[in-house]
Amino acid sequence: EINATPKGWSCHWDRDHRRYFYVNEQSGESQWEFPDGEEEEEES
């Protein structure tokens, strides 16, 4: 699962919740759901 993350994302293990979470390396935002690989940036 770690190697399957889309480009620009990293996968980390949360010991407290015993599950993986994903970090967007560009924005620093994290989420529980597996990233779909589409950038959802809304910068103007």
Rank of each mutant, 00 (worst) to 15 (best):
E1N: 06
E1R: 08
E1M: 12
E1D: 09
E1K: 14
I2L: 08
I2N: 10
I2G: 06
N3Q: 14
N3A: 08
N3V: 10
N3D: 15
N3R: 09
A4G: 13
A4L: 13
A4N: 15
A4M: 13
A4Q: 09
T5V: 14
T5C: 14
T5H: 03
T5R: 05
T5D: 04
T5L: 15
P6G: 02
P6S: 04
K7L: 06
K7F: 06
K7A: 10
K7Q: 10
K7P: 13
K7V: 11
K7T: 04
G8Q: 02
G8W: 01
G8S: 02
G8A: 01
W9Q: 03
W9K: 02
W9D: 01
W9L: 01
W9F: 08
W9S: 05
S10K: 08
S10T: 06
S10A: 05
S10E: 05
S10G: 03
S10V: 08
S10D: 04
S10R: 07
C11K: 12
H12K: 08
H12P: 00
H12S: 04
H12M: 03
H12R: 08
W13T: 04
W13R: 01
W13L: 04
W13N: 02
W13I: 00
W13H: 03
W13D: 01
D14N: 06
D14Q: 01
D14V: 01
D14R: 00
R15Y: 06
R15E: 15
R15T: 09
R15I: 15
R15D: 12
R15M: 08
D16T: 11
D16K: 09
D16S: 07
D16G: 07
D16N: 06
H17F: 12
H17K: 15
H17M: 07
H17G: 06
H17R: 14
R18Q: 13
R18D: 01
R18H: 10
R18G: 14
R18L: 13
R19C: 08
R19P: 00
R19M: 08
R19L: 04
R19V: 03
R19H: 03
Y20C: 08
Y20L: 06
Y20P: 09
Y20V: 08
F21M: 11
F21T: 10
F21S: 08
F21R: 15
F21K: 11
F21Y: 00
Y22R: 03
Y22G: 03
Y22S: 05
Y22L: 02
Y22M: 03
Y22D: 03
Y22V: 01
V23P: 01
V23M: 05
V23Q: 08
V23T: 15
N24Q: 04
N24F: 01
N24A: 02
N24P: 00
N24W: 01
N24T: 02
E25P: 04
E25V: 08
E25G: 06
E25R: 08
E25S: 05
E25L: 09
E25A: 08
Q26W: 06
Q26S: 11
Q26C: 15
Q26F: 12
Q26I: 04
Q26V: 08
Q26L: 09
Q26E: 06
S27C: 01
S27G: 04
S27R: 04
S27P: 00
S27N: 04
G28K: 08
G28E: 01
G28L: 05
G28V: 00
G28M: 02
E29G: 07
E29T: 07
E29R: 11
E29H: 12
E29N: 04
E29A: 11
S30W: 13
S30G: 12
S30T: 14
S30Q: 15
Q31T: 09
Q31I: 03
Q31N: 01
Q31A: 05
Q31D: 00
Q31P: 00
W32Q: 07
W32K: 07
W32D: 05
W32S: 07
W32Y: 09
W32H: 09
W32L: 13
W32A: 07
W32P: 07
E33T: 10
E33D: 07
E33W: 04
E33P: 02
F34Y: 10
F34W: 09
F34E: 10
P35N: 01
P35Y: 00
P35Q: 03
D36R: 12
D36P: 12
D36V: 11
D36A: 11
D36Y: 03
D36M: 10
G37W: 09
G37D: 07
G37I: 07
G37T: 12
G37C: 10
E38M: 14
E38S: 14
E38K: 12
E38I: 12
E39N: 14
E39C: 14
E39S: 11
E39W: 08
E39Q: 14
E39V: 13
E40A: 14
E40K: 13
E40I: 14
E40V: 14
E40G: 13
E40F: 09
E40W: 10
E40S: 12
E41V: 14
E41M: 11
E41R: 13
E41G: 14
E41N: 10
E41A: 13
E41T: 12
E41S: 09
E41Q: 14
E41K: 11
E42A: 14
E42V: 12
E42G: 15
E42D: 14
E42W: 06
E43L: 10
E43S: 14
E43M: 09
E43T: 13
E43P: 14
E43V: 14
E43K: 13
S44P: 10
S44D: 11
